[in-house]
Write a protein that binds this DNA or RNA. Sequence first.
DNA 1: AATTCCATACCCAGTATTGGGTATTGCTTT
DNA 2: AAAGCAATACCCAATACTGGGTATGGAATT
Lengths: 215, 215
Amino acid sequence: MMHKMVKVIIADDHTLFTEGIEQILLSLSGFEVLAKVGNGKLLLQTLNRLTPDLILLDINMPLMDGIEAALLIKKQQPNIKIMLLSMYYDVKMIAEVKGDIDGFVMKDITAPELKHAILDVMGGKQVFILPEILQQKSKVKIADSYLDRYKLSVREIEIIGLIGQGKSNKEIALDLELSNYTIETHRKNIYRKLNLQGTAELIRFANEHGLGIRG
Amino acid sequence: MMHKMVKVIIADDHTLFTEGIEQILLSLSGFEVLAKVGNGKLLLQTLNRLTPDLILLDINMPLMDGIEAALLIKKQQPNIKIMLLSMYYDVKMIAEVKGDIDGFVMKDITAPELKHAILDVMGGKQVFILPEILQQKSKVKIADSYLDRYKLSVREIEIIGLIGQGKSNKEIALDLELSNYTIETHRKNIYRKLNLQGTAELIRFANEHGLGIRG
DNA sequence: AATTCCATACCCAGTATTGGGTATTGCTTT
DNA sequence: AAAGCAATACCCAATACTGGGTATGGAATT
């Protein structure tokens, strides 16, 4: 296994990304890209005629998302290794797939790191590479950036994150053991600082800035 | 210009993506990648010592987002071409940058299309490649998929999209010339079908499935 | 023909959110 | 010492949203 080409299928709806990954794997050598597919259904169909060693699988895809596809594939062809690729980290999601998936990496790792992760997975390890923010002992680095740009406080950033995960003010108040009034006040300040109106715009902001990451 | 290497800087916080793009450009030949940077500030610093012909610039980056950086760079070094890369399409955003930016492409185009777009830009054209969904005469293709998966109706998908853009029920009712009651009813049905609770979860869904794209 | 689904619309009641404002305490900066 | 900021908390009022339900008409399916 360590000495032969790893046959890979790449599944991601962003073509630039899949073609980029393909080029990366070719440049790393040791890999053969069997196919690149843009959605979960196409992936299942492709598996009817190709048998990879490994699938690199984006979580967010049209028609059938990555996790859904992964669980199906694992059931049908348990020998195929599956590594999930994501821009986001979500504790609930990881817990959901932990027993079934061979690896999880985020899109901010380097190509050598990806290669290393793949080889670990092919060697039988289960590899979960956590996002940098969770590896750090503190969140000073990311928090500082939002402090600077938007004059957001640490608490405000935290609350944006919780809202970004879909929590209501009430839930957040319970989580943080604060009054509901306090959460509302923070939200008022957040809207003012970011010049946003309403939950929808705020969540969009959170997503675009990766602030829905649970930490 | 057509016969010499195009010097490119790639700016995107997802390292796998920047390294992928680099590999793509190398495989296409005719390009020299001067640098890959992960945020807007680093990009500005890099421009103090390198002068590219072209910057491929992701919109969503930490510390300084793509548009902010682009407008600054265009002011300081108007001869550098800038092409924005995005996963999302937003009419308002495009209108905002249309006068300043040389190109906009989405991450679901192919590498040859990217090359073609770059060469057009380097040749003096302004290139805006619209997402596939906007190029289609109808939305049957994407709508069908959600019909199947979630039993969502065409109207429901449309309303998710509008909510995903941050519109209130009242605004949507005005847009679609319907009663506010109707929008609320559609929302109730959407929550039930998707097993979601509240605006935050719905918007997250919309974003993850690209349903915030204006069509 | 009957049933189901979709689109549209409404009522009711309760909760959630937003925007205006106020206030206190503690810490940091000037 | 004074000022500014963050965290926390509250009041008021209005609007927005949610979840329960009802209903009609038209189109598609059974």
